[in-house]
Each structure stands twice: as structure tokens, then as C-alpha cells.
Write a protein that binds this DNA or RNA. Sequence first.
DNA 1: CGCGAGCTTGACGTTGTTCAACTAGAGTGG
DNA 2: CCACTCTAGTTGAACAACGTCAAGCTCGCG
Lengths: 228, 228
Amino acid sequence: MRIEKNVKCEDCPLKCDIYLTSREMGMESMLNPAYVYYKKFETICRQGGKIDNSTVILKGNAKMFVSGHCSRNIILNILIPSNYIGLVSLYGLPDYPYSVAALEDCHTCQINNDAIEQIYQKNEHFMKLLNHSFGHSVSNIIDKLISLNQKHIRGRVAESLLYLSKVYDSECFKLTITRRELGELSAISEENTVRVLTDFKNENIINIDGREIELVDIEALSRISLNC
Amino acid sequence: MRIEKNVKCEDCPLKCDIYLTSREMGMESMLNPAYVYYKKFETICRQGGKIDNSTVILKGNAKMFVSGHCSRNIILNILIPSNYIGLVSLYGLPDYPYSVAALEDCHTCQINNDAIEQIYQKNEHFMKLLNHSFGHSVSNIIDKLISLNQKHIRGRVAESLLYLSKVYDSECFKLTITRRELGELSAISEENTVRVLTDFKNENIINIDGREIELVDIEALSRISLNC
DNA sequence: CGCGAGCTTGACGTTGTTCAACTAGAGTGG
DNA sequence: CCACTCTAGTTGAACAACGTCAAGCTCGCG
């Protein structure tokens, strides 16, 4: 981790909603942004830790996950540039309910939460923006709850692959996660993840070459994902 | 279901936060409340249905649940008087992400969502109240996600019993749900629910007499609930 | 060349679901 | 009042799904 203070948003390659909105309102000076660089595998925030600012991902992938008592993880989301971490504090959670770790070298920007809260309360549009993104993620977690309890491993892996193709925005992508982590995304064991992947390959539903994955038959994947 | 319009909040036995806040702001006239009575087993709202107002429970218990593709349900919460249904629309979800059904005869009040949204946007205190309650429920769902994936059935049933004793506000309570529903609360089968309950009884951790349950050894239950 | 991390495969055991049968109590109609 | 039925609860046995363990493989790197 490397911190760089005295950063100016004007120089930032990603114009995040927080900056754009605050500029519109003439409150840019309050943001007090810090540019923070994480190396691969580094922890960006830890479940249970105090939230004292919000983080925007500028470059690189990260995983958002929760860990139970047996130190087995469930990955909730893969975070990509422009995603936020730590906004839950606006919704009354003083501590992170999840952990985030860098899957690649990550460039992030940390913004003072007080400023965000002020903008949130004063700007109806911004408030709706954040509320909707929060509501959306709740709906995602509920979906995960259902599929975790009711789908078989084939369905769960199919779902994860479809999710990843959305995240990477292509049906042909290079995984930034290991097999174990793909398992954690589907909440199954690493071994079964591999087994299902090779089955899918043999059934000509996907193509795999190491970390390179191509979704050949998306129809079939959707069907398998829905078949509980 | 029986609807009664032209209801006055002053006559309502439960003074909900929505009424209290709107009165404070002189906006009571906007609420346009309707008193709705549901018989036991009736559906109060259906997963996927459009949200067009918010409902406050005045009297009676209800279950909030999600149903997967195989028509197997997971109960997220037991709702009691003063709990809200449908506030998620404030957070950008146009449709209910869950269903709610009456466990007993239920008295409810339905309030116009536009009014709530206006109060929400204009009243910082009210906004925080709702945000915190929403954030809290998210945190609950994440906990459920973890225990569903990582805990054994004994742990899950123990957790549900502890949860119920909080809901009913006593370690000795009469269930408003069936064994099957207790299973749905723990996301396990009815049969295994019964088996675990009788085990707990034989181990002198709880007492059961039909729907009457007494938590005898709460320490033990907590321990079992944490042992994954 | 050897080492280690990530990946793969097979064998086995455990957990929890499902099916089936049985019991008890409540409600119903002759 | 008694049979009948229906629902809720209970128990046992068989089965399927998944996790775990163990072993081997591959590839990149020192």
C-alpha cells in the first residue's frame, strides 16, 4: 500500500460521481481525496473494521467477500473501476460488513465520508444514485441467498460464469481469480469447481485454456443456471 | 383482505414514525392512509409485484420470505407490529424482492409512497432512520448468507430459536409458525427441523410442548449456533 | 534442476434431502 | 356420537450431493 495525498480530482482519469456532483455544488474542496495504491493480494478493507472513508476503484480488480467462522470465504462481488467501497456507512453500519482484497495491482481513491454524507443529504439526484446502487446490491445478495440454498453446483457455477462475463463485459475473458476463488464466488469447494468446469468443457458449453474462458453456449448456461 | 379508507392517524393505536414525522412537518394530509385487514395465510405482498405503497404492521405476525425456482421458500424475517414493508422502493427497487404472508390475522396500514419519499428527502432525521433500518437488514441478510453456507443444521436451528426469542421478546414463547416454516427460517427441510428440535429437547437445551417453546440453556444454544 | 502454487482427478465419508409410513388432533358430515 | 378426512408433526431408511483427503500434474521461477 502506498498513499499519496494532495491529489487533485481534475487530474484523475476517472471522473467519479462524487467528484462530478461535488463540483456542480461547488464543494470540491471538501473531498480531500487521497490516492492509494495496493499491490496484488493486499487487503483494501477488512470485515469488522471501522469505516472512516469511502474508496473508489480507479484501476484494477478486487474481490468483495465475507468470511464465516471457519475462515471459509464467500465472494459477493468482483469490483471493477468506478465501483465504491464503504458507502454502507451512510446506511448506519459503522463497520465494514465485508472485506475487500486486490486481485491485481489496484489504484484507488479515498474520499472523506463527511463530505459524501453532506452531498448525499443536500443533493437529491446524488442521493437517489447511491440509494439505487445500494438497493441493487441488496437485491443481488438476496439472489445469492436463494441460489446458494437451492441450486446445485452446476447451476451455481453457470451463474458465476454469466456474472463474470458481465463484469468483464465479454463472453471471452481472462479470469483475474483462481479456481479456489471461482469456487468462493459460487460458494462451493475448489475441487467441485474444477469438476464442473471440465464437465462444461466436455459438453461444449465453454472453452477453457488456463485462465482464459470463453462462453460458447450462453443459452445452455442460462438454462443450467435456472434449473435448480 | 378488507380495506377501509378514510382512516385517521390520530385514531391509530400505533403511532408510527411516518405519522409522527409527517405531523411534525405539517404534512399529515399527504399520507392518505388506508387500513387493511388480512386473514391468516393471506398474502400481503408478492415477490416480483409492483410496489405502490408502504405497509406498516399494526397487529399480528407475518413472514417475509423469498421463493426460489423450485417453490422452496426461505424466510428472511418474522415481522411484528411497527415493522415496515415496501420501503425498498425508496432504494430503487420498483418490485418487491420478497413476499410477505400473514401468520395470524393482521391489521396493517398502507401509506402513499410519494408522501414517504417527500418526507424522506426533506427530513434528515427520518432519512437516517430509514437508512439505518435498511442497512441493518442488509447486514442481517449477509449473516444469513454465511450461516446458510457454513453452519450445520444444528447451528442453523439454534440461530433461528435465538432469533425467535428476540422477536417474541422472551425465552419462552408460542410459535406463530409451523415446523415447516421453522425449517424455512433455517433453510433446511421440515424433517430435519423436527429431528434437531427433539435432539435439543433430549439434551435439555430446550423444552417443547407443541408450539410452546422454552429456551432452557441459552448459553448452549449460542455455542451451537457459533460452532460451524 | 528443484520447488511451490495452482490445478486436476479419484476415492471416500458425511450431511442433509427425500420418500414413505405412522400418529395425533381438529374439523366435518351423516 | 362415530367414521372420515385433513393438516401438522414425527420417525426411519435409502439415496444423492457435496466436501474432504490424498495424490499427481503443470508451469513459472529462483
